[in-house]
Structures are given as structure tokens and as C-alpha cells.
């Protein structure tokens, strides 16, 4: 749910990175955090377990600059990917403006990708949202690993509606900002429509 404050002249939008466990959602946010100028970002918060698995969410506030006199801020969230944290995932989708599905390109994670994508649809539906009507893009992460599935195959399997899709290696930053920009643009375009 975008939040427009006429008093402080700010637009705030919430983007959520979703995907199976260990697909690289947190790594995306860490890369964005490391590469963003200090004045354009807030603190990155990670609510993680002792083994650095996301327990509740990661949070990164970004400030992109002004648009028509309004400061544009994006709040980036990740969800915990592990199957048993479903209740937490549901909560984080509340008030979402745009979703990035981070898929793990490795062959052995295909089932996990499909399961997570189905889970995303279900959890959005529980909150009254429809994935196909939301600003939404897909990132095929870990393209540098040996056992990756060809992008065409991933696309056919995970992206039947042909939303914007990006190859990525989040650890080195390949595709990370392309994904973020594509999603942010969709969200702002939606705002223009009067949503």
C-alpha cells in the first residue's frame, strides 16, 4: 500500500523480495545496501537466526530522489524462505506495492521454486491481492553456478504471464539493480494510474 504524505511531501512504497530458502533474497538487499550512497539509504535491519537464516524479515529503506516535489522512498523487505515460516511470510506481504520473486536457477531447486511461487500466490490471495494485478518481476539468481537450468526453461516454468525477468548473480551484483529498477518503475507507473 503506497503511503503518500502531503505534509512531509513523501511517497513511500513497499517492495517485497520473495522466494525459496537460500535463493539470495537477503544477498540482493545486502548488495543494494553496499552499493547505495549513504545519504540515500537507512540502516539495513536483518531479523535472522544465529546461523544467519532470515527469521522474520530484512528491511532496507532507500530514498530515490524527488518526483514532482515528492521525495520518493522505497522500503525493501525480504521474507524468510524456509517453508515452516509461512505465518511470518504472510504478515510481511501486508501492504505490499510490488513483488520480486527470486528464483534459484539450480536444477535441484526447481521444486522449491515452484512451491514458493504457489505459496506467494496463496499468501497474496489471503491478503486480498492478486499476483497478476500487482507490480511484479522475476529474477533468476545464481546464474554463475554449474547446475543451472537454461533461462528459457525457467521462464516457461515460472513466468507464464511474461512479467519482466532478469538473470542475476546477487553475490557479485549482476542483475540486482536492473531488477530493483524494473520493479520500482512498475510501482510508480501504478501510482500514476491512481492506484
Amino acid at each position: 500500500m503506497s503511503f503518500i504524505n502531503y505534509s512531509s511531501r513523501e511517497i513511500n512504497c513497499k517492495l517485497v523480495y520473495y522466494g525459496p530458502g537460500l535463493c539470495g533474497k537477503t544477498t540482493n538487499l545486502q548488495y543494494i545496501y553496499n552499493k547505495t550512497k549513504p545519504d540515500a539509504k537507512g540502516k539495513m535491519i536483518s531479523l535472522a537466526t544465529e546461523t544467519e537464516r532470515t527469521l522474520f524479515f530484512d528491511f532496507l529503506p532507500l530514498s530515490l530522489g524527488e518526483i514532482r516535489g515528492f521525495r520518493t522512498r522505497f522500503h525493501l523487505y525480504t521474507v524468510p524462505g524456509q517453508v515452516f515460516y509461512d505465518a511470518s511470510r504472510k504478515l510481511i506481504l501486508k501492504g505490499v506495492d510490488g513483488v520480486c520473486f527470486v528464483a534459484d536457477s539450480q536444477l535441484e531447486r526447481m521444486e522449491a521454486n515452484i512451491e514458493s511461487l504457489e505459496n506467494l500466490r496463496e499468501n497474496l490471495a489471503d491478503q486480498g491481492y492478486e499476483l497478476d494485478k500487482l507490480p511484479y518481476c522475476i529474477q533468476y539468481n545464481k546464474r554463475d553456478l554449474p547446475s543451472v537450468v537454461p533461462v528459457e526453461e525457467l521462464s516457461e516454468l515460472l513466468n507464464p504471464t511474461r512479467v519482466p525477468e532478469f538473470d542475476a548473480v546477487a553475490t557479485t551484483g549482476i542483475g540486482v539493480f536492473d531488477t530493483l529498477k524494473a520493479l520500482a518503475k512498475q510501482v510508480l507507473t501504478e501510482l500514476r494510474k491512481g492506484s
Partner: peptide
């Protein structure tokens, strides 16, 4: 909203 989402506006 058009897509079924809501928006919060503070005046």
C-alpha cells in the same frame, strides 16, 4: 485501487 490494493493518503 485499480488492482484491488489500497493506498494511504495523509493530508
Amino acid at each position: 485501487a485499480l488492482n484491488g490494493l489500497t493506498q494511504t493518503v495523509m493530508y
